[in-house]
Computed example of a mutant assay.
Amino acid sequence: MTAGVLTAGLVSFRRGNSQLGQKLMRARVVVQGATVALMVGTAVYYGQHPWNKKPDPSV
């Protein structure tokens, strides 16, 4: 999603639509922040070292 917004923003700037390009760059920052938050949340949810956890024998 971040790459898509970034690409659209760069295309807008190249075509001369600087207002739309600026809005898309701001949207990119928001989407990028959400991506980082999702990555951190996933790391916290699964633990810092999920490969060190022993498998659940009941599964």
Rank of each mutant, 00 (worst) to 15 (best):
M1D: 11
M1G: 08
M1K: 12
M1Q: 11
M1P: 12
T2W: 07
A3L: 10
A3M: 14
G4D: 14
G4K: 07
G4I: 01
V5F: 05
V5D: 03
L6Q: 09
A8P: 00
A8Q: 05
A8C: 00
A8E: 10
G9D: 01
L10K: 13
L10H: 02
V11P: 00
V11G: 01
V11C: 01
S12Q: 04
S12A: 15
F13Q: 11
R14P: 00
R14E: 10
R14V: 03
R14I: 03
R14S: 09
R15S: 04
R15H: 04
R15A: 07
G16T: 04
N17E: 03
N17L: 07
S18C: 03
S18D: 05
S18E: 04
Q19H: 15
Q19M: 07
Q19E: 09
L20R: 15
G21A: 02
G21H: 10
G21K: 02
G21C: 07
Q22C: 09
Q22M: 13
K23E: 13
K23H: 13
K23A: 10
K23G: 01
K23T: 07
L24V: 01
L24H: 05
M25E: 01
M25N: 01
M25V: 07
M25C: 08
M25Q: 09
M25F: 10
R26Q: 12
R26V: 00
A27Q: 15
A27F: 01
A27I: 00
A27P: 00
R28N: 15
R28Q: 14
R28E: 12
V29N: 13
V30N: 12
V30K: 15
V31C: 05
V31Q: 12
V31P: 00
V31K: 14
V31F: 07
Q32L: 06
Q32Y: 06
Q32M: 09
Q32R: 13
Q32K: 13
G33Q: 15
G33P: 05
A34M: 15
A34K: 11
A34Q: 15
A34G: 06
T35W: 03
T35R: 14
T35Q: 13
V36S: 10
A37T: 12
L38K: 11
L38M: 11
L38A: 14
M39I: 09
M39N: 08
M39P: 00
V40R: 11
G41T: 06
G41M: 10
T42Q: 14
A43G: 05
V44I: 15
V44A: 10
Y45P: 02
Y45A: 05
Y45F: 15
Y46P: 01
Y46M: 11
Y46H: 12
Y46S: 06
Y46D: 03
G47C: 08
G47A: 05
G47S: 13
Q48I: 12
Q48C: 07
Q48V: 10
Q48M: 09
H49V: 14
W51C: 02
W51G: 06
W51T: 09
N52F: 12
K53D: 12
K54C: 03
K54P: 00
K54M: 10
P55M: 02
P55A: 07
P55F: 06
D56P: 02
D56M: 01
D56G: 03
D56R: 08
D56L: 03
D56W: 08
P57F: 09
P57G: 04
P57Q: 04
P57M: 06
P57Y: 02
S58N: 11
V59I: 13
V59Y: 14
V59K: 13
V59E: 15
